[in-house]
Design a protein around this nucleic acid. Structure first.
Lengths: 125, 125
DNA sequence: GCCATACTACGGAAGAACCCGTAGACACGA
DNA sequence: TCGTGTCTACGGGTTCTTCCGTAGTATGGC
């Protein structure tokens, strides 16, 4: 097991952009962020993340391109485990039940989920 | 839509106990917490949560009994939405796929999930 | 060469989160 | 009555997070 891996809100937003893009410059991150932050604020966030070891950078022309060092899957593991544990009393089923009860899920999404679950059940004789 | 509802780690741990128990005194929260905090630290956390409006208290004997004012479902909504949005690129399916790929899920759990999903699909003709 | 532009490094302010000690109130038993 | 134990209120210290301004460096156009 690895350390629990936790990102405060703003840092998570930045990581999210790095995961989506696969790597981004400060300016790109700034543009992708919903809130309108100063350039240096974005830079600071990235430097903080780098200091923590979650991110690295390499020169690209005059600028740096930042890249995530932890992958989204790992972060997803930690986040879902935390949600399951603290909000759904440790029960994966409770989490699941709540997840699929979301009205905004389309029928086709639900059907693809059913398919996924069927596959998952099939692979374990 | 309500406000996004977010709890930093320690406060989430405290809320978790209130959700599980339905209400608890400071001493009970302290005992239930994994980390060994000073009594007053736990009290502080509860007072902070109360100030934010997530918690209330009523006298019970000489002590206060604290109770959550937001329910776990709402917190679950926010938490899952945040995870889906920032880690799984907004895709409920990606989240789901990752969720069911967890090795620690037992076959019976998975089967109960399948049932739940089937019911959910059935209720929408 | 000189200027504007784009970028990073650095430092620091302000607030949030976290943690606890001390003081005071209150009840109970000796 | 006099501790003793349990509880809350209050205040303060420390670290983390967020945010940005200033200064310095390099690049490319003129």
């Amino acid at each position: 097991m690895d350390d629990p891996l936790y990102f405060p809100p703003r840092e998570l937003a930045v990581m999210s952009i790095l995961w989506r893009t696969g790597g981004a410059t400060v300016a790109e991150v700034k543009d992708a962020l919903e809130e309108n932050l100063a350039y240096t604020s974005v830079l600071s966030a990235l430097q903080t993340l780098e200091e923590k070891g979650y991110v690295t950078h390499e020169a690209e022309g005059r600028a740096y391109r930042y890249r995530a060092l932890v992958d989204a899957e790992k972060a997803g593991d930690s986040a879902l485990a935390r949600v399951r544990e603290s909000i759904f009393q440790g029960s994966a089923e409770k989490l699941f039940a709540h997840f699929v009860s979301d009205d905004k899920l389309s029928r086709s999404e639900l059907e693809r989920m059913r398919r996924l679950l069927a596959d998952r059940l099939g692979d374990e004789p």
